[in-house]
Design a protein around this nucleic acid. Structure first.
Lengths: 229, 229
DNA sequence: TAGTGGTAATTGGTCAGACCAATTGGAATG
DNA sequence: CATTCCAATTGGTCTGACCAATTACCACTA
């Protein structure tokens, strides 16, 4: 990873040991910086640097006065990178939508081919949550969750990671004034996608997803894609 | 970004100031930790933590005894995350190929619609480099560069970031024993893609890219995609 | 004069201890 | 039992010292 020196630095070594500790830990709470420093026989600054690295990688959440929590958010670094890369929210939304139009029909196709029974159940539950939601925040969450579950059901972990990051970024944009207008259209579109997946019709699932994303794009007023680049 | 506390931490603030400094700096070398600590009126450990954060984000390269170099490698965090997510090289390659099959035909389509004259020149030059290369390492680099240039020419920065990361990961896998077998096929495929882009035939470009990726997949022996999940 | 080797200065990596800021748990009070 | 307050705990920052890697400069040799 960083600092391609010949021998691993102490921070490299301690990062790896913290990951191992996290994987074998029964609680979702890690020992304190001071404890780990004593345990690993290094200074607190090394532990601190290693922990901060893991935080940035989406594996830990660190709070002053509270300690370190083990999490699984490997998509966070990508979300940060995209934010840095395209700071303008409108441009970012345009480009995110375009990437989604490439990725998500294939996610739906693969989900139709590969989803497990458990995954199908989760998809149905997520669809119900969208149908039943009353406020905008919950609508956005349920909508994005449906998409992330499809990515997971595709069986491609990398695709699922990308989708989680896209979802995070979209949620940020949507909470900043970009509004989904028509929940009814989304519910109808999702139902079509879900039916195609349940019936294992891969092509139909891909087409239904593309149609849905085009609707969503239109709803967000993003029809003119990248013409002013 | 991290530590969603109400007021920005010193490390947050100093990270931003380093970014500003990097953007206005004539040299690609930043001042030393000690210099920046004095300049920003903070301790060296705060500068260090801020710099390490920027390193992980792909904005700096730090070397002991040598100092800090400003770089632009925003794709690096994603590469690391994917590595952590899918440690198994074969599985990773399978999934990367699948993601490429989703993303890259659309990259080619958009490149055909949007590439500038400069970008087209770069694509031609990259194609020539692939045709003329003699050894495997150079072949891989030229091949991946062609793909990254298409992603850039698509005008979608997020897509280009994803492609750079995928390219990094692929180069790692290919240097670990996964061999591209038929350069002639790649050259022929690339020529078709390039022609379609030059002639602004978006659909043809997308189809040619998909064909190329299917050839590459077959060459790598990845036909059986995710059937053992 | 050009090339090589050695050394000192510089710069990042680590250590230790102190103090500050945020959180949490326990005790006291109503 | 519920609420408030305070002390202990835990991460954030500071300081100064020392260690490890790199680079620039100087001296020597061919």
């Amino acid at each position: 990873m960083p600092a391609t020196a010949q021998s691993p630095s102490l921070v490299d070594t301690v990062s790896r040991r913290i990951i191992t500790l996290a994987r074998n830990h029964t609680s979702d709470r890690l020992p304190t910086e001071r404890d780990m420093a004593a345990r690993f026989g290094v200074s607190r600054s090394v532990v601190r640097e290693a922990a901060k690295r893991l935080e940035l990688q989406g594996l830990l959440e660190i709070r002053q006065g509270s300690g370190m929590k083990i999490v699984d958010k490997l998509h966070k670094p990508l979300s940060s990178a995209v934010h840095l890369l395209v700071p303008d929210e409108k441009k970012r939304l345009v480009q995110l939508t375009e990437v989604r139009l490439a990725l998500e029909p294939e996610n739906a196709r693969h989900a139709a081919e590969r989803a497990t029974a458990t995954e199908l159940r989760k998809l149905k539950a997520a669809h119900d949550r969208l149908k039943n939601c009353q406020d905008f925040e919950t609508q956005v969450l349920a909508d994005m969750e449906f998409h992330c579950l499809i990515a997971e059901a595709s069986g491609n972990k990398i695709g699922a990671l990308l989708m989680q990051s896209l979802s995070d970024l979209l949620q940020t944009s949507l909470s900043h004034g970009y509004r989904l207008v028509t929940k009814d259209q989304a519910v109808e579109d999702h139902a079509r996608i879900l039916d195609a997946i349940l019936l294992r019709r891969a092509d139909e699932a891909a087409t239904a997803m593309k149609t849905h994303l085009l609707h969503a794009r239109d709803d967000l007023g993003l029809k003119k894609t990248l013409s002013n680049r």
